[in-house]
Write a protein that binds this DNA or RNA. Structure first.
Lengths: 233, 233
DNA sequence: TAGAAGCGAGAGCACTGCTCTCGCCATCAC
DNA sequence: GTGATGGCGAGAGCAGTGCTCTCGCTTCTA
């Protein structure tokens, strides 16, 4: 981001921050589909058309909140993973998983915006969201990579047959993330990744039902352990 | 449902079916948040206020679609699971998982309505949705139960410590689903369940990114196999 | 200091969910 | 058969939405 120089530019940046903050608050109380430009304008003490000086459209406002959310989640994940020594691979994986769940429970509406059903008619612009959006998987890949490099990944009992087409995908992934992990580990990692968010989504979205798990913390902890086992770290 | 007797009641039932059908079509093309009572009315060739003779509110219309979706998914899952012999536990699990994915890819909007972010302000009425909404997990529980009864579940290497509070949850689940599976198996089953939907959601909601997996079928097949391994069947 | 550019206000358009009233007509009790 | 009941669709109307346009005011820039 280019620093603000003139007072006008600084005022503009401040207003944009205010809009993001108010938008996040509305997201939390009303939900994504009920997010209204007019309501944000009211809270900002301004008429609705004025918002369009800062935000091209309602979708553009959503993108602002999406990027903001990805960054917040990414920051927390990096911070928590950073507290665990690099050679404690399993501990780092657990820390990342717990960070994701903690943030999701704290910001359920933003979590829903990022990982729930896509908002209809809204297409997140790749150039602004893919960067922040890949921070969690990047952190996970780093853990597997380091575990693999350290020879700390348990070998599978029966190695998996990987068809050619899928192998090509995995090769591309290895290149994009600059990792050397073998096919089997990448596949187990991808499963852990999707499963982690599956568990968190089930809890945040209430799929377990209202009266099924009262010991949600303990449940999640066991799920994380099982996923670490599945990955082999 | 009580059968329709008078012509008037039959006409009413027909109109309700039409509304559901048109609603599902709009859901598919526009998405849940864009589902509009007025648009459904237009397609039905009727003025908007007339819809309210059949549906109490927009949320009530959503409930109609939710129940319809759960039933369709449940029917497909039951049908596919029914084709696999009862003693092929792993095969039944795979069939259920494939059925969920197949339906989700065919009806992404309805899948998003059921398993994506909750529609803001909309609370699904428990008395109408919990029944149809538990058919998939019920089918899965049956597989584990039969596998356990047949002694076909692989024992875990290191048994899990289950804290008292979580054990109470598991006890209640055992009672609700009339199963005798031990704590460890129930926990692994719940993980498989959440992970299965995590994988499907990642694919349907595009979380993998637009250019990551071209061999999505093969990827999902490996994920299912890994989940079956994790469950121990 | 004059022109350019940013900004907020207000009106307005087309849309939404939902309510209310008003007639029409099938159904039902007698 | 006839009169009362009640379901039904049409239409008007209210409050809200996203978004566009124009009009002045202010601030920055050359």
């Amino acid at each position: 981001m280019s620093q603000a120089h003139t007072p006008r530019e600084r005022a503009r940046a401040r207003t944009l921050e205010d809009i993001t903050r108010i938008g996040r608050r509305h997201l939390a109380t009303e939900g994504a589909a009920a997010l209204s430009v007019r309501a944000v304008a009211r809270d900002l003490g301004v008429v609705s058309s004025a918002i369009y000086r800062y935000v091209r459209s309602r979708d553009d406002l959503l993108t602002l909140l999406v990027v903001d959310g990805y960054d917040e989640l990414g920051d927390l994940v990096d911070q928590r993973a950073g507290k665990v020594p690099h050679d404690d691979h399993r501990g780092r994986f657990l820390a990342i998983g717990r960070a994701v769940r903690e943030w999701a429970l704290r910001e359920p509406a933003t979590y829903a915006l990022l990982f729930g059903s896509p908002v209809p008619g809204y297409q997140a612009p790749a150039d602004r969201t893919t960067g922040p959006g890949t921070r969690v998987i990047a952190a996970l890949v780093q853990v597997w990579e380091e575990a693999h490099a350290a020879g700390a990944v348990r070998d599978p009992e029966a190695p998996m047959r990987v068809p050619r087409k899928l192998a090509a995908d995995l090769k591309r992934i290895r290149k994009d993330f600059a990792t050397t992990a073998p096919d089997e580990l990448v596949l187990r990692g991808v499963l852990s990744w999707a499963a982690l968010f599956g568990c968190v989504s089930f809890e945040v979205f209430g799929q377990y039902g209202p009266d099924t798990f009262h010991a949600a913390d303990e449940l999640f902890e066991r799920q994380l352990q099982l996923l670490a086992d599945t990955t082999g770290i």
